[in-house]
Design a protein around this nucleic acid. Structure first.
Lengths: 347, 347
DNA sequence: GCTACTGATGTAACCGGTTACAAGAACGGA
DNA sequence: TCCGTTCTTGTAACCGGTTACATCAGTAGC
């Protein structure tokens, strides 16, 4: 392991100069700078990050807070890989790395009602590591814990959870807009009784999608009927159960907007179980555009999220805060209605 | 941010003693230890990780090397979330964190034939951060680059790639055994012409699955016919194309083992396109047990991998090396044949 | 009572950078 | 020629822990 001192010695300069070459090149004369750079390259010198973090009081790492919510077992993020790759590559181009934070699971065992292993443990972790910032991934329904991070003063970007603070912002899809466009599409196909199966209460994207559903109805000149709103939990099973309940009514809906593709698939299965043809007897639209959507039969019409956009937008917002100090506006990523077969618009 | 010096001052001891309380408690008298522990807790003291790493020459972080192979765009890991969560929680219980390494993408642009952004850049990164160890995720077909890591002397655990070295080992599924059991199952259902669609050449799990296919045939007393082995690339499209080629033969197979669920789905679609009924006219078995497998129609019989097991096994192997210095034996995770509808054994 | 040993703690030198400040060189203007 | 800038570089004090070594007290053995 080559140190700056060795480079300095070989160049006949002091360590301070070597350090300056890497941190504030403008303050070093051109000739010295080139000499140091060449020697550093020849020796394959790269500064020790621990030492740098110690002296700068700031590491080149961004923490990733992401826990499974034990109250929602089996929950999977619809596009984790895209998200992480997007984050990683955007951060790396500015020299930052992503540290996946973990606390011991003790806290969860002690407080079974809490999904995040003790948020305070995470906050202390961020201090210990002198993290430059945090990315918070919503892991379930109780994102309130995230405000603890926002209050710690560290630059924070939350995904799919509204978070505000002097150095906190968030990124989310235009959930309301996407839902509204789905509903308008259904209405344009002639549907008048359009139901929805929502996500869990308290979940921000779920709430926004329900709101969008109402807005879409209004824009289409349709009346919102509360008995056509069924609460689900994003899982397939709840879509199945919800659809069954809707179909059991005396005037069942002719179309349903499910707040997740998983639930849409559940609805599809429920329709099939009830002997209905999709889309002939029932139109179904989902949300997310997960891989399964294009595979089920009939292929699912759905509102697609900008999956890679999440990672890059989050990284962008974070980097902006790392440089400017004040929080940028929340980012609302556009969604896109992907029309396949389950809504019947091609028949 | 409370420092050890402040704790020491409040306790009337030296910093060295405070440090000892946390690192080698046995060398401190019981009364002093308790006093220090109490004060540390009251002040919410936690040691600065940068300082600790600097002085110990070793950080409490494990690097995660995981890049998308640009030669395989769109490739997704079949169970990334399980993997990461398993790793994270197993490592955290021993105080380690996971650092997602990223290098700037320059190297990739310069050498378009290389999938990993310059492996040497990663090696230098591990030195800079004084990482305790590395976890290597196979991102495609050219895992040879990983040997550079194994040679760096750092404890390494590779996933799905054979890696050996004094401090290197790997974790993979029993790909051969799983494939063999799938083929035996098909044979036991009376099939005699069993084809396979393989993964990409040079990919270790793909090779093992093909080997298992041959072994399964042999165990069932069937002859291996090379013209029933079609090379695919794990993607759905190649399963579709491969199946179409197989069905175009004059004596098409009655069963096919696809080395991935994605390809199995492709095969399913090809069979449907050819007007065949699955499983009546053609039996299909896949590998992985991804979520889609249970959703397609007919539901896919497949060889399930122990998804959470990967993470914990990898963490276990790594932790063993961090403590004992010598590499444990490679871990071969058992697979399990999940019988659904596409193989016809329930009809 | 003296020596040898053990156990607990303090002292200070690290680990490898960053950066405030000082010092010296070069240079332009009066 | 002298003074005040500006530019470049070195000196040394950090950052906050860890740990080899020294010190000192207490105790057992003779």
């Amino acid at each position: 392991m080559v140190t700056a001192r060795e480079v300095a010695q070989l160049c006949g300069v002091s360590v301070a100069t070597v350090s300056r070459v890497f941190n504030r090149p403008a303050t070093v004369s051109a000739t010295t700078r080139e000499r140091v750079e060449r020697v550093a390259r020849d020796l394959d010198f790269s500064p020790n990050e621990s030492a740098r973090a110690l002296s700068r009081q700031q590491s080149a790492m961004v923490g990733l807070v992401w826990d499974t919510d034990h109250r929602r077992p089996g929950w999977r993020h619809p596009f984790l890989q895209d998200l992480l790759l997007g984050l990683k590559s955007a951060l790396s181009s500015h020299g930052y790395h992503l540290l996946m934070l973990a606390t011991s699971d003790d806290a969860r065992d002690r407080h079974p009602g809490v999904s995040l292993a003790d948020p305070l443990a995470y906050v202390s972790m961020t201090r210990r590591h002198h993290l430059a910032g945090l990315v918070l991934i919503d892991s379930g329904t109780d994102a309130e814990a995230f405000t603890a991070f926002a209050q710690s003063g560290l630059p924070c970007v939350a995904l799919d959870v509204a978070l505000s603070g002097p150095r906190a912002t968030y990124v989310t899809s235009d959930n309301a807009g996407g839902a509204a466009s789905a509903v308008r599409h259904l209405a344009s196909l002639g549907h008048r009784r359009i139901a929805t199966i929502t996500g869990p209460r308290g979940n921000a994207p779920a709430t926004a999608r329900t709101e969008g559903y109402r807005r879409g109805l209004a824009e289409a000149g349709l009346e919102a009927r509360e008995d056509l709103v069924i609460t689900g939990d994003f899982y397939r099973e709840s879509g199945f159960v919800g659809m069954r309940r809707l179909l059991a009514r005396k005037d069942p809906p002719t179309a349903v907007f499910a707040a997740s593709d998983e639930m849409a698939v559940g609805a599809l299965l429920a329709a099939r179980a009830a002997g209905l043809q999709v889309p002939a007897d029932l139109a179904v639209v989902g949300f997310d555009d997960i891989e399964v959507a294009s595979l089920v039969d009939p292929a699912l019409t759905t509102v697609a999220q900008d999956k890679p956009g999440f990672g890059t937008a989050a990284a962008g917002a974070l980097l902006a805060m790392l440089e400017n100090a004040d929080a940028p506006e929340p980012v609302l990523l556009p969604t896109k209605l992907v029309v396949r077969e389950s809504c019947g618009s091609r028949s």
